Amino acid sequence: MVYKIRDKETGKVYEVTIDEETNEITVYDVKTGKPVKTVNMTIEELKEAGYEVEPV
């Protein structure tokens, strides 16, 4: 599923895909559409880390 996340401190917005089964999150560069990095976190962990998470 695709989400937009926003860093509450910097205001930067990222587009991510989240595999609900493995909790693998792939972060994409919004301008190029290319993957930047992959992390292993849940949506709740993202929120605790200071991100706003919205489904696209």
Rank of each mutant, 00 (worst) to 15 (best):
M1A: 12
M1G: 11
M1K: 15
M1C: 14
M1R: 14
V2P: 10
V2D: 07
V2A: 11
V2G: 08
V2H: 15
V2K: 15
Y3L: 09
K4E: 07
K4F: 12
K4D: 00
K4M: 11
K4W: 13
I5P: 00
I5D: 00
I5Q: 00
I5E: 00
R6T: 14
R6F: 09
R6M: 08
R6S: 06
R6Y: 12
R6G: 01
R6H: 07
D7F: 05
D7P: 00
D7G: 01
D7C: 12
D7T: 00
D7I: 02
D7R: 01
K8A: 05
K8D: 02
K8V: 08
K8M: 09
E9P: 01
E9R: 14
E9T: 14
E9F: 12
E9H: 13
E9K: 15
E9A: 14
E9W: 10
T10G: 02
T10P: 00
T10V: 01
T10E: 01
G11Y: 02
G11K: 03
G11E: 02
G11V: 00
G11N: 06
G11A: 02
K12C: 15
K12Y: 09
K12M: 14
K12I: 14
K12N: 11
K12R: 12
K12G: 05
K12W: 09
K12P: 00
K12H: 11
K12E: 13
V13C: 11
V13S: 06
V13N: 04
V13L: 08
Y14G: 00
Y14S: 02
Y14N: 01
Y14L: 03
Y14E: 01
Y14M: 04
Y14F: 09
Y14K: 00
E15I: 15
E15S: 11
E15D: 13
E15Q: 14
E15W: 15
E15R: 10
V16N: 00
V16L: 10
V16Q: 00
V16R: 00
V16K: 00
V16D: 00
V16Y: 04
V16A: 15
V16T: 01
V16E: 00
T17K: 10
T17P: 00
T17H: 13
I18D: 00
I18Y: 15
I18V: 13
I18P: 00
I18K: 02
D19M: 05
D19L: 05
D19N: 14
D19I: 06
D19V: 06
E20K: 12
E20D: 10
E20H: 12
E20Y: 13
E20G: 09
E20W: 14
E20C: 13
E21H: 10
E21Y: 12
T22W: 05
T22H: 13
N23T: 06
N23A: 07
N23K: 10
N23C: 08
N23W: 07
N23E: 06
N23L: 07
N23H: 10
N23Y: 06
E24W: 14
E24A: 10
E24D: 07
E24H: 10
I25N: 00
I25Q: 01
I25K: 01
I25V: 08
I25Y: 03
T26V: 10
T26W: 07
T26M: 05
T26F: 07
V27C: 15
V27G: 03
V27W: 15
V27D: 00
V27H: 04
V27R: 01
Y28I: 10
Y28M: 10
Y28Q: 03
Y28P: 01
D29E: 06
D29V: 02
D29N: 05
D29R: 01
D29G: 02
D29A: 02
D29S: 06
V30S: 14
V30T: 13
K31F: 14
K31C: 15
K31A: 14
K31V: 15
K31T: 14
T32P: 01
T32N: 06
T32S: 09
T32H: 04
T32K: 01
T32F: 02
G33P: 00
G33M: 07
K34C: 15
K34Q: 11
K34L: 13
K34N: 11
K34I: 09
K34F: 11
K34W: 10
P35Y: 13
P35G: 03
P35S: 05
P35H: 08
V36G: 04
V36P: 01
V36I: 15
V36T: 08
K37R: 11
K37E: 06
K37P: 04
T38K: 10
T38R: 11
T38H: 09
T38S: 08
T38D: 05
T38G: 05
T38V: 12
T38E: 04
V39K: 04
V39R: 02
V39H: 05
V39D: 04
N40V: 14
N40P: 06
N40M: 12
N40W: 14
M41I: 09
M41V: 08
T42A: 03
T42F: 01
T42D: 04
T42S: 11
T42P: 02
I43T: 02
I43F: 07
I43H: 03
I43A: 03
I43M: 11
E44S: 10
E44Q: 11
E44R: 08
E45H: 07
E45C: 05
E45T: 06
E45I: 05
E45W: 05
L46C: 06
L46A: 02
K47I: 13
K47T: 08
K47C: 08
E48N: 12
E48A: 11
A49N: 09
A49I: 08
A49P: 01
G50V: 03
G50K: 04
Y51R: 01
Y51A: 02
Y51C: 07
Y51K: 02
Y51G: 01
E52A: 06
E52F: 07
E52Q: 06
V53C: 07
E54M: 13
E54R: 05
E54D: 08
E54K: 04
E54G: 05
E54F: 14
P55N: 09
P55V: 12
P55G: 10
P55I: 12
V56Y: 10
V56W: 12
V56R: 02
V56A: 11
V56T: 10
V56F: 11
